[in-house]
Design a protein around this nucleic acid. Structure first.
Lengths: 136, 136
DNA sequence: CTCTTTGCAAAGAGTTTGCAGGGTG
DNA sequence: CACCCTGCAAACTCTTTGCAAAGAG
């Protein structure tokens, strides 16, 4: 389809995505790489993230607080999303691909990916809450 | 917290959301109600959807093709999202709330909601593909 | 009469895109 | 030297917000 040439920036973006577990957004990656590549452009980050997803080197965790979050870990696992601070954590989950067949039968289509996520309040936000004690 | 007064438009928006199974976006609801309420404003739709979610009368299915999709069915169920046409279908799924405890133990936080979705290609898009037959 | 809701339009925020120049094979 | 990749900035799209007028209790 599209020939893909090597690019130092692309390699760095993918490496940055792989070496973190915070499921960064495009801006988070941009901020992290800006010091190493002062001339990096946000558009380049977006363009490369799209390539990673097209190539199966990354997936989207979904939109959290208006920003799309990415994950280089493409093995089946679920996520915990803190509605308070926007943090995204990995949590283990049973393999869902076993349900594909049933879903496909139900909708008459084909399933290519699944996503399981839990939303709530993370440990940090819970402890900060106790200080604000305005309950009741 | 916030006193809530009756509003004809709000009632209509909620009714429109409840009487469809296509998990509409704000614009879809707006388009559907525009004929009945020519002076309806998109901002009002957004404002009311936010209220429904705050009140637990609706939930967000997530962002599909850049648009947030809503669901008035708050009972536990999964979704199938067609990556091709953006359609969102209901599919049944085992009750996931039983996993809350394990997740909370894992992250040290509290879980308030779960979301399971399958992405792929729906029956309609599959059949349209066969016409373009470029496989092989 | 008081407080909530709405229309309108402008403002915001995140993401995409066109183009000219630089990098890779 | 042909084609991919990038920076820059403008363009887009979806969503939020401020304000004065209208509606509900």
């Amino acid at each position: 389809m599209e020939a893909r040439k090597y690019s130092k920036k692309r390699a760095a973006i993918l490496e940055a995505l792989r070496s973190t577990d915070e499921h960064p957004s495009a801006e988070m990656l941009y901020a992290r790489l800006k010091s190493e590549f002062p001339d990096l452009s946000l558009g380049t980050v977006y363009r490369n993230l799209a390539m990673f997803i097209a190539d199966g080197d990354a997936t989207s965790v979904g939109t959290v607080a208006g920003q799309e979050r990415y994950d280089a870990d493409t093995t089946p696992h679920a996520h915990f999303i803190c509605a308070c601070c926007g943090r995204v954590l990995d949590v283990c989950s049973p393999n869902l691909s076993g349900m594909d067949g049933e879903v496909e039968r139900e909708v008459g289509g084909v399933v290519t990916s699944r996503s399981l996520s839990f939303t709530g309040k993370c440990a940090d936000c819970l402890s900060h809450d106790s200080g604000k004690g305005k309950a009741s």
